[in-house]
Design a protein around this nucleic acid. Structure first.
Lengths: 150, 150
DNA sequence: TTGTATGCAAAGGCTTTGCAGATTG
DNA sequence: CAATCTGCAAAGCCTTTGCATACAA
């Protein structure tokens, strides 16, 4: 389910995003087109509120944002990211040409950096040997960034 | 900050828990003693509501549970565990003789199993080389357990 | 046309805050 | 006695739900 590189061409990226909707018979509305464009523009995880602030001016409702985030996640267009601050975040699965990755979050300023290595995927097999199917994982690092360390 | 083995002796475990409070000048109240006993009895992650249900009969308020959970976490008596279901969970740091560990959560029935191996700790050094101090991590596995797979 | 998607209003779940009174050290 | 902790009530924040209308296919 790895995405091809559609970077550097927003039009194609949006079309790719929308094709995922059409694939399963979901409808392509003007709200969803606007959301797709905004989602593609994010570099890294974003919250419902983050996304809403980008589309609010177009008269799109917060509830629509929540409903679409949920729908896009079901379609595996988005993945969920959790920073332990009580707010769910999402990330466009095709935005990172690096594919599967994790994050380091500064405990003070909440800055986020991507981490492009992952040692955990091999462990999923060990977990499957424990009797689990369809194993995935969520991993985030927390620390203090250079600026906040003074 | 690894805990010694206090298993098989509840009285000693409770005393150890309370000594952590006294260490920093926090007060030992009858509510906190009751909470300590209940927390020690949990085998694995529990929510505020889980804990409240154990002490409610003693007239302890839900707000007190929340406030103590927060205080105990600050004192590193508890760690926070997140299962991506919108409810914060906690785990007694000394209850697992295995020390640092992770969990596999069944996506259907929400059953939790501990995972006693961890390949990630070595990666924390790599993250520190990226310019972060005090690096820790949160890792959880998600899958479908045998029963739910039918 | 027919079912899906949206907007608005309201509710819901989990957690935090304010404050007065009780308790600990 | 002074500072912390507790209970109660209320608020807060993020997210979901209900329902009538609008819209895509």
């Amino acid at each position: 389910m790895q995405c091809h590189s559609h970077s550097h061409n927003t039009k194609k990226e949006v079309e790719f995003f929308l094709s995922k909707l059409r694939e399963v018979g979901s409808r392509v509305t003007k709200q969803r087109i606007a959301l797709a464009k905004s989602i593609i523009a994010f570099r890294g995880p974003f919250s419902a509120e983050d996304l809403y602030s980008k589309v609010e001016s177009q008269g799109i409702d917060l509830v629509t944002v929540y409903r679409c985030l949920s729908a896009f996640t079901d379609l595996e267009i988005l993945s969920t990211v959790n920073f332990e601050d009580g707010t769910q975040r999402y990330e466009y699965l095709c935005s990172s040409d690096k594919g599967h990755h994790h994050h380091i979050i500064c405990k003070k300023c909440k800055k986020v950096d991507p981490i492009n290595f992952c040692v955990v995927q091999g462990q999923e097999q060990l977990v499957e040997q424990m009797g689990y199917a369809n194993v995935s994982h969520k991993l985030e690092f927390f620390g203090i960034c250079k600026k906040c360390a003074n």
